[in-house]
Design a protein around this nucleic acid. Sequence first.
RNA 1: GGGCGGUUAGCUCAGCGGUAGAGCACUACGUUGACAUCGUAGGGGUCACAAGUUCGAACCUUGUACCGCCCACCA
Length: 914
Amino acid sequence: ATQMVVERQMAEAGGNESRALLGRDAFVERVWEWRHKSGGAILEQDKRLGSSMDWSREKFTMGEDGADDDQMVRAVRKVFVDLYNDGLIYRAKRLVNWDPHFQTAISDLEVDNKEVDGHMWHFKYPLAGGETYTYVEKDEDGTVILEETRDYISIATTRPETMLGDGAVAVHPDDERYKPIIGKLCEIPVGPKEYRRLIPIITDEYPDPDFGSGAVKITGAHDFNDYQVAKRGNIPMYSLMDERAQMRSDGAPYAEVASIAGRIARGEEGFDEAKITAMNLVPDAYRGLDRFEARTRVVADITAEGLAVMSEDGEGNPVPLVENKPIMQPFGDRSGVVIEPMLTDQWFVDAETMAKPAMEAVRKGDTVFVPETWEKTYFNWMENIQPWCVSRQLWWGHRIPAWLGIEVDEDRRLIDEHGRTPRVFVASTKEEALTAAQQSYGASVKVTLADGIEDHVAPAFALDSNKKLIELELVQDPDVLDTWFSSALWPFSTQGWPDDTDDLSTFYPTATLVTAFDIIFFWVARMMMMGLHFTKQVPFKDVYIHALVLDEKGQKMSKSKGNAMDPLELIDEYGADALRFTLTAMAAQGRNIRLSKQRVEGYRNFSTKLWNAARFCQMNECANWDGALDPSAVKQPVNRWIAGQVAKTAREVTDALEDYRFNEAADALYKFIWNVFCDWYLELIKPLLNGDDGEAQKETRQTAGWVLDETLKLLHPIMPFVTEVLWEKLADGGPQRDGFVMRQDWPDFDSGFDAPDAAEEMDWVIDLISETRSIRSDLGVPPAAKTPATLVGADETAQRRLARHKDVIQRMARLEPLRAASSSPEGAVSTVVGGASLALEIADHVDIAEAIARLDKELASLTKDVTSTEKKLSNENFVSRAPTEIVEENRQRVVDGKARLEKLTAARRALDTI
RNA sequence: GGGCGGUUAGCUCAGCGGUAGAGCACUACGUUGACAUCGUAGGGGUCACAAGUUCGAACCUUGUACCGCCCACCA
């Protein structure tokens, strides 16, 4: 993690240049200047993160020299050394993705494949010695569609410049067209004519007979598939480019090298890796050219010579066959330049072996992905995992704890004359490396450590007159480790590992890793592998994969694309709480978040709403003094009701949080605070707060204060700032606070808080008010008008409720006077509430025709509903197969619907008489 | 080519077997002593399409069409 931060810092400082481009001294200078400019802030950041980098000017050493005691460094080195000793890390010459800009190897995951407009050229590779064969092409039915005599084999390529490194031409063993020429030699149609290189035509399963000409040129050193074919067929892999992806200009002149290559192709001369590596098969004319320039030149030269496969243009004139087609091209995701496959010596982790326990742990459920569906992504990658290249040719990072000598035989003679074949000593410290090397070479060789940092891997050595090794300067591998190598240790290395610390035993394995899906491969999988290997335990129990924040267009935000929304700007505008709430509310599992300002604005309004509600409470002296209230024992129905609502909300929020359903937690809180607490409760208690029943007033004040306190606790994780401030402010004239709201016990209510009777009663009140408001609004009764109303046919319960809540109903529904009676007054417009009719004397205000239309509309929809439910109930299958509670629910629906229908019909009839 | 996911109101998205929800936007009305960053009421959806399973499908199964993302490949 530290390393990533540093890398990012470097990028920001414009220091994102390679070791090779910049050189060590210039790099150190730049780092120093930049860090100096940062005014020490970065140093502080390093300290906080426990950075193992020592960036001081004198001691700058790629982070590690002199840092033997640093715990992080020890952890990284131990991991490397142990894995090496277990055979899980090895050094090998392999084809890697090479970033020519940074001049470093990168891993597959750092490659960004993009579709670009590409060209595919078709060239003729003439057969050696002017040989000919009969080329026959058949269609699916076996009908001959082309038969001609050819003296060449046709090859398609998108990368003509790599033809210079071809080691063979491969065809599928079942491809009848090329059977006659298998095993023969053909000529690469490029380079000086007198030194044309010959390569064999071989068979391999890899070529697809239906694609292109069916014949593939094999360039093992510059293509991943060709690499595999070349390995299988022992085809030489000629490297054509240098670290900057320019055509090589080292080594012997082309004529000399090409004649050796010719002998190798004819089997007249053997070859080994070192020999092939040293050979530069780039013709003199192309040496030093950029790869793209070389491509242009190669194409032009071949075409000029008449060796391009020809086609016809629209007017029937012959033109070289060039297919324009979109091709996927790999780009370095940081440098943005085309990646070049390069054959180099690198360190690899045997990821395939390490992936096995990591997969097993998830299969067994030791580690659980939330949402579960991401397990598939994890397995998909782990099952197809490739060796992990961990070497990086950069100036920052943890240096690889490997020291390089040279390979000698038993007589201490060099294995290869250039001394380029290394003998490797992996050790935790340079002293150990030195000791190991001394032991390895024997007492007659004077082994010393090279001073400072060499940017190459060939150590200095001296031979005696018998060409035996007598002196050797051991060099540390100049490369550093991939960022993710040390990041993979994070769960345990941050707890003090490899030391046996209290932190480690207390906090490891960790509970939950919270991360985004785009990092499952990079980080999660690797933490699993390293954690299991070194601690025998999973690094975390749950992996919560949260949504990714996209911009409004649905694009992944990234600094390089410049479409990132700066959270600080949003916070300046709407507040951190609003942004936090937005992200929480949108964090539905397994989704992306398209962040929109409007949404943030909405939740800013929400916090304002809460603020105002709290202000109202404070103005009315609402507070749970000294926690004296027992909210499960309040008397007023409205208070009993809200206590039940608080308990219900608390349970919803807790359950949602525990299941990582953060959006549901946010949703439950939003609805409770705005739609229950503010919209109803605060309105419903106004008469009580202003009334003259002292006991009810006191209880209500306490209850309201208690509800607010509990709400603040529940909301605090999502909106920490406003809740903390309100918590503190409400103490002013309110209860003593026992520290921050953050430190309070999490609300946890048993079912004793649920008050079904109070809930039913308050629902009745709310229904009555809502229904009245709706009818008034629909029929255009002026909002300010107070209208007389009569509750007709109310049973005892309804009458009691009416009496108890008369004040608040009158106030909120603007009904006055409000009374109960056995019959409806003349000329009233009625609606039905909870089994009774509510007759509103609003005829003066309204158009009766509209009132009739409104009722008819309701009657129609209710009738339809009752009819369809009855129909459902008459279906025997439904009654016998559906769960009883569902059937019962439907029966009740019919009963209620019919009762309502009856009353509405009566109300409708009454209107006719007006 | 392999894998994963999406298609629900004008927009952004919840819901994932029991007659469709939110926020924003929209319409009408409103200076009622917390709140106009607000209140009240309202309009708006054959839940992409098709076939199946089921008493019952936005939800399960299969297929189709679009749209994303990841991996591989295109010599």
